[in-house]
Computed example of a mutant assay.
Amino acid sequence: MRARARISTTAAVFALSALALTACGGNDDSKADGDKTSASASASTGSSSGDSAGSASKTKGTGTGGGGSSTGDKDTSSGTGGSNGGDSGATSACSTKNTEVAFVQSGEHAGEQAPATGFIQVTNTSNAPCTIVGATTLTAKDDQGKAAPIETDNAGNGTDAVDVKAGGTAKAYVAYTDVNFEGSASGREVCAVQASKVEIALPDDVARTVNVTKDGGAAGSFNVCTTDVRVGAFETA
Rank of each mutant, 00 (worst) to 15 (best):
K141T: 11
Q144T: 13
V198W: 03
A110N: 08
P149Q: 00
D205K: 01
S95W: 00
S70W: 12
K60S: 11
T152R: 03
Q113H: 03
V104I: 12
K36P: 08
T64V: 15
S42N: 10
S184G: 01
T91H: 08
L202D: 06
S186M: 07
P203K: 05
V101K: 02
D28P: 13
D178E: 12
S38W: 11
R6P: 15
N124C: 03
N154T: 03
T169L: 08
G216E: 09
V190P: 07
A172R: 01
Q121C: 07
T117S: 06
A102M: 09
N211I: 09
K197V: 05
N84M: 00
A140Y: 04
K165S: 06
V193W: 03
R188K: 14
R4K: 15
G25T: 14
V198R: 05
S17L: 14
D153W: 04
E100G: 07
S17N: 11
G217S: 07
A41Q: 09
A207N: 07
T125Y: 02
K165L: 02
D73M: 09
G46V: 09
A147F: 13
M1I: 09
D33F: 10
S44M: 01
V179W: 12
Q113Y: 07
G167N: 00
T80P: 04
G66Y: 12
A172H: 00
G134K: 06
A116H: 02
A170D: 06
P149R: 01
N127F: 10
G65N: 15
K36M: 12
A128S: 08
T71H: 14
P115R: 00
A175I: 01
A3Q: 14
G220V: 10
A161D: 02
T59C: 05
A219D: 15
G34C: 10
G61S: 13
C191H: 14
G82E: 04
G220D: 11
C130L: 02
N124M: 00
R208M: 08
E151G: 04
P149Y: 05
V162T: 07
D228M: 02
A90T: 10
G67K: 13
A147K: 11
A192F: 12
G145A: 00
T99E: 03
E151R: 03
G145W: 00
P115M: 03
A39T: 11
E108P: 02
T62W: 12
R230I: 09
S196P: 10
S126E: 06
T177G: 09
T117Y: 06
S48K: 04
T209M: 06
V212Y: 09
A185N: 00
T177A: 07
D204W: 04
Q105P: 09
K97M: 06
T99A: 01
V198N: 01
V229H: 05
N223A: 15
S30G: 10
P149W: 04
R2L: 15
D73A: 14
T99I: 02
G68E: 14
E235Y: 04
A170H: 07
G66I: 15
G63S: 15
V162W: 01
S126V: 06
N98G: 00
T152P: 00
T45L: 11
D204H: 01
S95L: 04
S69F: 14
T45C: 08
S42P: 08
S52H: 07
G63K: 14
